[in-house]
Design a protein around this nucleic acid. Structure first.
Lengths: 192, 192
DNA sequence: TCCATAAGGTGAGTCTGGTTCCGCTTACGT
DNA sequence: ACGTAAGCGGAACCAGACTCACCTTATGGA
């Protein structure tokens, strides 16, 4: 199953072009760029697009996989550097910053977190696991409540990432994460 | 501008039929029922549909206005009966229960809270005001932090309402509101 | 070097679903 | 009754995702 065949040179080129055209469009805020436009600006026809990507949404997932990878890798590194609760706090802020990368990214994060769209199943699962890691470390250390799962927290973050382009949204987003973070500590074994 | 003319009898009948067909469909989970289906099951043609509603989305807003009204009215009553923080807590749970009414309702609440769709501008504003009322009462009483606005909290609730039909989502939703509630109290003047 | 051939590309066409438009119908005031 | 403005129907239109039958070309072996 891995690399059934190495993919022809022109094919790889086109695939790459499509992906980068998509990233370009999405990051610049045009989350619902038309397939035809993406294809054209990659210099290919729609048929070619569909040779490489199952559907329009599949492309979106692919386009953002890199970002999601970065995000999902963060917890391990953070836990290495900081106490669990601090690591959690930093991760939440990281999430917000990523949502800030471009209006598009925030749309995708929203798709990941706030919907059930099967397109983002994979990303959602990995993200929930990343959060679980942090929560478990925190609750083991007794600084974070232990009755919240990664997927619950993921859900709770959905709204944050849905915020786009509103005046001063970054401030709001930071406040929300602060709110959640305080809530997470509030119920911790020793504090209430 | 008010009642430019009392609307002909058959027209009112049809409008009502459309609205109720839509509510029926939406509440039973089919948030993206087709205009044609709604029209048919109301016993009219699409043309009639568009005589009464600007767009498909406009219908959705209309269909849920009643629910939103109920929700927005709650804070006043709650503040009458309970201390501000308790009123806030109850309101958050009320929101969750409303989202539970039907998969459709939760979709709409999500639309209200987690997007910028102009369709829900009105509902969003009113909801934010309702939350502000509670937050202000709470912060005046010193039991709730004072650095969070209604619209911020609204955003924070976005994810909750986006949850649909997942096994045990109600429990998750309650946990998230508890999380937010604890976070809201955590930063209150006297407690930290 | 050249050919055979399978991988890749093309874009007109299909399909789905929202929206428009215009001619017919009907409620309702006189 | 009747005239007419308000309503209604539904075929036509349009947008945008996706398909398919056919053409083009990279590539590996003779």
């Amino acid at each position: 199953m891995p690399a059934s065949r190495p993919l022809r040179a022109d094919a790889r080129r086109n695939r790459e072009a499509l992906l980068s055209a998509a990233r370009q469009a999405f990051l610049s805020g045009d989350t619902d760029a038309h397939v035809e436009d993406i294809a054209r600006s990659a210099g290919v026809a729609v048929g070619t697009f569909y040779r490489h990507f199952e559907t329009r949404e599949a492309l979106m997932e692919e386009a953002y996989r890199k970002e999601v990878d970065v995000l999902c890798a963060a917890p391990v590194a953070l836990l290495d550097q900081h106490a669990p609760d601090e690591a959690l706090r930093r991760f939440l802020l990281l999430l917000v910053d990523h949502a800030a990368v471009g209006k598009g990214m925030s749309g995708v994060l929203e798709g990941i977190m706030a919907t059930d769209s099967p397109v983002f199943d994979d990303a959602r699962t990995r993200m929930a696991e990343a959060l679980s890691l942090l929560l478990e470390a925190g609750s083991a250390a007794g600084t974070v409540r232990d009755d919240v799962t990664g997927s619950t927290l993921l859900r709770a973050l959905g709204g944050v990432c849905g915020m786009r382009a509103t005046e001063g949204w970054l401030v709001e987003a930071r406040q929300i994460t602060a709110l959640l973070f305080d809530g997470l500590r509030h119920g911790a074994p020793q504090s209430p």
